Amino acid sequence: MQYKLVINGKTLKGETTTKAVDAETAEKAFKQYANDNGVDGVWTYDDATKTFTVTE
């Protein structure tokens, strides 16, 4: 399945996608991506759209 990440950071904004077997695996990949880019915020997930959002 394909999952999307929407980033609403202080210095980084945008979107990225990943393919993963489940939401938990996608979340780990997205959190690593956010961490690598210095984004630390509040996470939400919408199962209907398979979209994670992180807001600083």
Score class of each variant (00 low, 15 high):
residue 1 M to T: 15
residue 1 M to H: 14
residue 1 M to Q: 14
residue 1 M to Y: 14
residue 1 M to L: 13
residue 1 M to D: 15
residue 1 M to R: 10
residue 1 M to E: 15
residue 1 M to S: 12
residue 1 M to W: 12
residue 2 Q to K: 09
residue 2 Q to C: 14
residue 2 Q to F: 14
residue 3 Y to P: 02
residue 3 Y to G: 02
residue 3 Y to E: 02
residue 3 Y to C: 02
residue 4 K to Y: 15
residue 4 K to F: 15
residue 4 K to M: 08
residue 5 L to I: 03
residue 5 L to F: 06
residue 5 L to M: 06
residue 5 L to S: 01
residue 6 V to D: 03
residue 6 V to C: 06
residue 6 V to A: 04
residue 6 V to T: 05
residue 7 I to T: 03
residue 7 I to R: 01
residue 7 I to E: 01
residue 8 N to A: 09
residue 8 N to F: 13
residue 8 N to Q: 11
residue 8 N to P: 03
residue 9 G to H: 08
residue 9 G to I: 12
residue 9 G to D: 04
residue 9 G to E: 03
residue 9 G to T: 15
residue 10 K to P: 08
residue 10 K to L: 14
residue 10 K to A: 12
residue 10 K to M: 11
residue 10 K to I: 14
residue 11 T to A: 10
residue 11 T to M: 12
residue 11 T to E: 11
residue 11 T to I: 11
residue 11 T to K: 12
residue 12 L to G: 08
residue 12 L to F: 14
residue 12 L to S: 09
residue 12 L to C: 13
residue 12 L to H: 12
residue 12 L to E: 05
residue 13 K to P: 06
residue 13 K to N: 09
residue 13 K to C: 12
residue 14 G to Y: 15
residue 14 G to T: 14
residue 15 E to I: 14
residue 15 E to N: 08
residue 15 E to D: 06
residue 15 E to C: 14
residue 16 T to G: 05
residue 16 T to L: 14
residue 16 T to D: 03
residue 16 T to R: 12
residue 17 T to R: 07
residue 17 T to L: 09
residue 17 T to G: 05
residue 17 T to F: 15
residue 17 T to Y: 15
residue 17 T to H: 11
residue 18 T to N: 05
residue 18 T to S: 05
residue 18 T to R: 07
residue 18 T to E: 05
residue 18 T to C: 13
residue 18 T to K: 05
residue 18 T to L: 14
residue 18 T to Y: 12
residue 19 K to T: 15
residue 19 K to N: 14
residue 20 A to V: 04
residue 20 A to K: 03
residue 20 A to N: 03
residue 21 V to R: 10
residue 21 V to E: 11
residue 21 V to P: 15
residue 21 V to A: 12
residue 22 D to K: 04
residue 22 D to Y: 03
residue 22 D to A: 04
residue 22 D to W: 03
residue 23 A to W: 14
residue 23 A to L: 12
residue 23 A to H: 09
residue 23 A to K: 15
residue 23 A to Y: 14
residue 23 A to F: 14
residue 23 A to G: 05
residue 24 E to A: 12
residue 24 E to H: 12
residue 24 E to Q: 13
residue 24 E to Y: 12
residue 25 T to R: 08
residue 25 T to S: 13
residue 25 T to F: 07
residue 26 A to V: 02
residue 26 A to T: 01
residue 26 A to L: 01
residue 26 A to H: 00
residue 26 A to D: 00
residue 27 E to P: 00
residue 27 E to R: 13
residue 28 K to S: 08
residue 28 K to P: 02
residue 28 K to A: 11
residue 28 K to M: 09
residue 28 K to F: 09
residue 29 A to I: 15
residue 29 A to H: 15
residue 29 A to S: 10
residue 29 A to F: 15
residue 29 A to G: 05
residue 30 F to D: 00
residue 30 F to H: 02
residue 30 F to M: 03
residue 30 F to N: 00
residue 30 F to E: 00
residue 30 F to K: 00
residue 31 K to C: 05
residue 31 K to H: 09
residue 31 K to E: 03
residue 31 K to D: 02
residue 31 K to G: 03
residue 31 K to W: 06
residue 32 Q to S: 07
residue 32 Q to T: 08
residue 32 Q to A: 12
residue 32 Q to W: 06
residue 32 Q to N: 08
residue 32 Q to D: 09
residue 32 Q to R: 11
residue 33 Y to I: 07
residue 33 Y to L: 05
residue 33 Y to H: 05
residue 33 Y to A: 03
residue 33 Y to T: 03
residue 33 Y to Q: 03
residue 33 Y to E: 03
residue 34 A to E: 01
residue 34 A to N: 03
residue 34 A to T: 08
residue 34 A to W: 03
residue 34 A to R: 01
residue 34 A to M: 07
residue 35 N to E: 14
residue 35 N to L: 14
residue 35 N to P: 01
residue 35 N to D: 11
residue 35 N to H: 15
residue 36 D to A: 14
residue 36 D to L: 11
residue 36 D to W: 06
residue 36 D to Q: 11
residue 36 D to R: 08
residue 37 N to Q: 13
residue 37 N to G: 05
residue 37 N to D: 03
residue 37 N to Y: 14
residue 37 N to P: 01
residue 38 G to S: 07
residue 38 G to T: 04
residue 38 G to C: 08
residue 38 G to V: 04
residue 38 G to P: 01
residue 39 V to S: 02
residue 39 V to F: 09
residue 39 V to A: 04
residue 39 V to P: 02
residue 39 V to N: 03
residue 40 D to T: 13
residue 40 D to Y: 14
residue 40 D to I: 13
residue 40 D to K: 14
residue 40 D to L: 12
residue 41 G to D: 01
residue 41 G to C: 02
residue 41 G to A: 02
residue 41 G to F: 03
residue 42 V to T: 11
residue 42 V to L: 11
residue 42 V to Q: 09
residue 43 W to C: 01
residue 43 W to A: 00
residue 43 W to F: 04
residue 44 T to M: 08
residue 44 T to C: 08
residue 44 T to A: 09
residue 44 T to D: 09
residue 44 T to G: 05
residue 44 T to R: 06
residue 45 Y to A: 00
residue 45 Y to M: 02
residue 45 Y to V: 02
residue 45 Y to P: 00
residue 45 Y to C: 01
residue 46 D to K: 03
residue 46 D to R: 03
residue 46 D to S: 06
residue 46 D to E: 07
residue 46 D to P: 00
residue 46 D to I: 04
residue 46 D to H: 06
residue 47 D to W: 07
residue 47 D to K: 07
residue 47 D to I: 08
residue 47 D to Y: 07
residue 47 D to E: 14
residue 48 A to Q: 10
residue 48 A to Y: 09
residue 49 T to I: 06
residue 49 T to Q: 06
residue 49 T to F: 04
residue 49 T to G: 04
residue 49 T to D: 05
residue 49 T to W: 04
residue 50 K to G: 05
residue 50 K to D: 02
residue 50 K to F: 10
residue 50 K to T: 04
residue 50 K to I: 03
residue 50 K to L: 11
residue 50 K to R: 14
residue 51 T to W: 02
residue 51 T to F: 02
residue 51 T to A: 03
residue 51 T to S: 04
residue 51 T to N: 02
residue 51 T to V: 06
residue 51 T to K: 04
residue 52 F to P: 00
residue 52 F to Q: 00
residue 52 F to S: 00
residue 52 F to D: 00
residue 52 F to R: 00
residue 53 T to W: 08
residue 53 T to H: 07
residue 54 V to S: 01
residue 54 V to T: 02
residue 54 V to R: 00
residue 54 V to L: 09
residue 54 V to M: 04
residue 55 T to E: 08
residue 56 E to F: 06
residue 56 E to T: 08
residue 56 E to D: 08
residue 56 E to Y: 09
residue 56 E to H: 06
residue 56 E to Q: 10
residue 56 E to L: 10
residue 56 E to W: 10
residue 56 E to A: 07
